[in-house]
Simulated assay, not measured.
Amino acid sequence: MKAFLFDMNGTMIDDMHFHLDIWYDVLTNDLGAGLTRQEVRSHMYGKNDELLARVFGVGRFTPDEVAAISQRKEEKYQAVYKPHLTLLPGLHDFLESAYHANIPMAIASAAIPFNIDFVLDNLDIRKYFKAVVSAHDVLESKPHPEVFEKAASILGVEPLSCVVFEDSPKGVEAALRAGMKSVVLTTMHAPDEFTDYGNIITFAKDYKDQKVVRLVV
């Protein structure tokens, strides 16, 4: 059985530049981190609490403070991004085709449920996914393979049957460690940032790419 596992941010929607803008604002203006935009970009993977720990050190904020910072950041992101919220070109048709071909699909994302619900419900695409695995459902973040392994387990499919749609090197590494192939959407990272990974089927700017379209067949 074939199955499709989707990261969300930068993979289904082209929003990573919005996340970068908001994180840069929160880290530099609200929290005084003094980072460049490129430095902020380098920290943008994994869970929000992990990002804050990488920047400020473990224990700098209490769990309640981390939760409040994270919530404030995501509320700012949603307010700014909502007018632009749309699926990547070709993705709706791709989901429809896979759905009617009975290919099981799951969301496997480092995003919190607050942001996953924001996308699935505002775009009315929840019906396509038999499983949703978020940051709250795993102990280890990408590049650890837990999120993809858990999604495959819920779908009842073997890792070798899964194709992971990702946009980041850490995500592709997680797919590799899970024993899964990957399609890379080049919304945020260039192909030359993925030279260490041998599990990539193809690079694509969106889901109109014929190599991607043919995966449903």
Score class of each variant (00 low, 15 high):
E140S: 08
P104D: 06
A152R: 02
I112P: 05
E166H: 12
V119R: 00
A3P: 04
E39H: 07
E75C: 12
F56Q: 09
T28W: 14
D25G: 02
H100N: 15
Q210V: 10
L88P: 00
V80S: 00
N9F: 03
D21T: 01
K73Q: 09
V184E: 00
G32F: 12
F4Q: 06
D15P: 02
H19V: 09
D49A: 13
A178V: 01
P104F: 04
D167W: 00
H189T: 13
L85C: 01
T195E: 14
A110H: 02
V138G: 01
V132E: 06
S153C: 12
G198W: 10
E96I: 13
L27N: 01
D124Y: 11
H19G: 11
A152G: 10
D64M: 09
G198I: 08
E158K: 11
L91E: 02
F129H: 02
A68F: 13
K150L: 06
E50Q: 13
Y128L: 10
A101S: 10
P63T: 06
V212Y: 00
D206H: 12
F114G: 14
G32Q: 09
D14M: 02
E50W: 11
Q210N: 15
D196P: 04
K142V: 05
T36D: 09
G32S: 15
Y128H: 05
E75R: 11
F165V: 04
H136S: 15
H144C: 07
G198D: 15
F56S: 07
R60T: 08
G90L: 03
F148M: 08
H19C: 08
K205E: 11
P169K: 09
Y24R: 11
R37H: 15
D167L: 03
